[in-house]
Amino acid sequence: MTRILSQFWMIAISLNLSLACALYHIKYKVIDLEHSHLALQKKYNILSESNHTLNAEYTFLSNPKRLATLAKKYLDKKYTNPVHLQHVSVVKLAHVLDLKSVSSNPIPRNQKVYSIRLASYQQPR
C-alpha cells in the first residue's frame, strides 16, 4: 500500500514538475511572442506613419497647380484643349501607324516591320 502510495506521489510530483516546466516554457514563449508582436507593431507603426507622410508629400508635390506651374516653366506645355481631342475614327491612323513614315532613319534589314491591323470601330453619333 505504502509502495503504491509512494509511486502515486512520485508520479504526481513528476507530473507537477513537468507541468510547471511546460508552463514556465509556455509563459516565456508567450513573452517572446509578445515582444515579437510589439516589435512588428512598432515596425508597422513606423511604416504606416511614413506611408501617411509620403502620401501627403506626394499629394503636395503632384497637386495640379504645382504641376501646371512646373510644366509651364520647364516644358513649355499648355493645357489640353478640346481642339487636341478627336475621336479615334477621325484621326488618320494609317499615317500614324506607318512605321516607315514615322521613322526618318532607314529600318535595318534584320528588324521586323510589324503590320498593325486595327479592330473595326463604330462611327460615333
Binding site: H35, K42, E49, H52
Partner: peptide, 8 residues
Amino acid sequence: YSSPFFQI
C-alpha cells in the same frame, strides 16, 4: 519596444 500606436 512599445510606441504609441499610429492612430491619427
